[in-house]
Design a binder for these strands. Structure first.
Lengths: 342, 342
DNA sequence: TTGTAGGCGTTATCAG
DNA sequence: CTGATAACGCCTACAA
């Protein structure tokens, strides 16, 4: 039942009585072409249901129409959002998306990626955090002749090769919101050292406390690694402090969920006894109880734009590079109700 | 700094003083080759850091070394696990993974997928549930000349083209576990109609109740659509029943989280007043409070095997097709403690 | 065991 | 505006 054989450019040329090259011109929308000729060829193309062979084009053009997504990101929801965003942009094009999860700590990371890019002759790659913070990696990709767009939480690159959220400002606003709710002892769970996003969120916390006129108690500063268990441990440490906080900001949602576990395990009620704010607005934020107040950043839109910068480098600089985040107010953060021990 | 030009098979041939064809034989590990010749050529290949151009191979062989992952699955964690499993298998090969999220309800679904497969000349595709249950789609892919492996929760295809979990048996065991804990009024939240996995889990529930010698109260049978909100609604309906259940089995974790919300919103304590069991063991299961007892199925291992069936069809039938699930016992399901209204 | 000629489907060059 | 002719890098068939 399989169709005899896929039609090739030769079939189209023969049936429409022109040369291959002319057909090629039609395909590639060359401007210098007789309108009548074009229409004739297009009719045959439609009739034959002809689709150009991308492998042949790739060979002739010395470049493959593949966009690579390289990441080592533990946040499944985010990665998937990115994939969907990229697809939004390339769906109607000849590009395809090839994914490559990697291990950031592998000693052969750079070699692996080099091999991957060379082997597949990628057109361009998109780097997700935290990998996107690796300048050496970005340089490698470019040396390999492929465009790179990085997604990050700060100015990691020039605007033609970057889509970034403004984590610092977002966290700052979240902290101000807590202050506005009357909290003055606010705990902080930082992300892992070496992560740019973690650093930005940390700076945002400091700035927010400053703007709100609150002092930072070093005893309420903890650090996790963006994973659930570390958030739980940080929550325990914070709640066991001599003078515990009435609100905690965690640098991502999963750690915020960990803080929530720590609180529940101690019999505290959230949000009555403890307010919690997270970051990312991943699925978990809305699904835990109570629903988590958190910072949302427009991942999918960023990915769409990133893909655009990848496949249309000539207009890349004109696309936005910075995307605002906003605070999603849910039930996990409410007004300060006085000292629970009082 | 970009290397002048990538070496081609011609460079290797020239430098090692043999013909292209001989180099080709070395690359393809042809058995009829002088050992000395082979070693000589291999040395040159290593020295030049030569990598065969996959586009050229694809053109000559009329097939591309791309595995497509086509899905319309809302569970990010699952999709990512699948991607990682496939990568485990193809990492050291010349294959690459290209992903294609689609909209199951699009009227042009089949055409879109046909176009995608033809355009990229895919080597094989992997179908995730619920798309994998679509026989018409599977047939289309095969007619297009590409191998299909389906992932599902029942015998959707022959063993060479299938990796499946046994949802029915797994749910059955979960229900027996609840019965063993002393629960006799057990509520059920089914998945959406038309989903094979939903049907299997439903059958498992019925079987489990039967095995435990419990009767099924139709008032405790509800249906959701695998999404959070529907789980919450189902939970509300169940808890508002005249004679509410002491335990609820939800057909996936997200709906279980919804049930948990419904319970919390009514001031019930989980698990003291209500036991809950979910299905999938996605990240959310461990991260909500209390940690969710749930059914885990070995997604990544299944994906690894599926990829193997895709790239080595000749040995596909020898790979396992069925994978056992197991119950992860966490805190959300405990012993029945008598009628809460009593 | 190895080499030669030709083809895979497309695009680039450069005449006409 | 259009068309021969020659790449692109690899593989198959056939010959030596």
């Amino acid at each position: 039942m399989a169709k005899a054989q896929k039609p090739t450019i030769n079939d189209v040329a023969r049936l429409s009585g022109v040369s291959k090259k002319t057909v090629s011109r039609v395909i590639n929308k060359s401007p210098l072409l007789n309108q009548a000729t074009r229409e004739k060829v297009e009719a045959v193309i439609a009739q034959l249901d002809y689709v150009p062979n991308p492998q042949a084009r790739a060979l002739a053009l010395r470049r493959n129409f593949l966009i690579g997504l390289i990441h080592d990101n533990p946040n499944a929801q985010m990665v998937l959002n990115v994939q969907e965003g990229i697809l939004d942009t390339i769906r109607a094009t000849e590009f395809a998306l090839v994914v490559r999860p990697v291990d950031r700590h592998s000693p052969t990371l750079l070699d692996d990626i080099r091999h991957f890019i060379e082997q597949q002759r990628l057109y361009g790659v998109m780097l997700l955090p935290p990998l996107s913070e690796n300048d050496e990696l970005a340089r490698l990709c470019r040396d390999l002749g492929c465009t790179v767009v990085r997604m990050g939480s700060a100015r990691l690159d020039d605007e033609a090769h970057l889509v970034a959220s403004n984590d610092q400002e977002a966290v700052c606003e979240a902290v101000e919101w807590l202050a506005h709710l009357g909290h003055h002892r606010i705990g902080f769970v930082a992300g892992p050292e070496g992560f740019r996003s973690a650093r930005e969120r940390e700076l945002g916390f400091i700035a927010g406390m400053g703007r709100a006129g609150l002092t930072i108690d070093p005893a309420l500063l903890t650090r996790g690694n963006y994973r659930f268990e570390s958030g739980k441990a940080a929550g325990e440490a914070l709640l066991d402090a001599e003078n515990p906080p009435s609100a905690i900001f965690a640098s991502n949602d999963v750690m915020a969920a960990g803080v929530l576990h720590a609180a529940c395990a101690r019999g505290l009620r959230v949000p009555q006894d403890l307010s919690i704010i997270g970051f990312d607005d991943t699925a978990i934020a809305a699904h835990i109880w109570p629903p988590l107040t958190t910072v949302r950043w427009p991942i999918r839109a960023m990915a769409r734009t990133a893909a655009l910068k990848l496949i249309r480098p000539e207009t890349a600089a004109r696309e936005p590079a910075f995307f605002p985040s906003d605070l999603v107010r849910r039930a996990s953060a409410i007004e300060y109700s006085g000292d629970p021990t009082g």
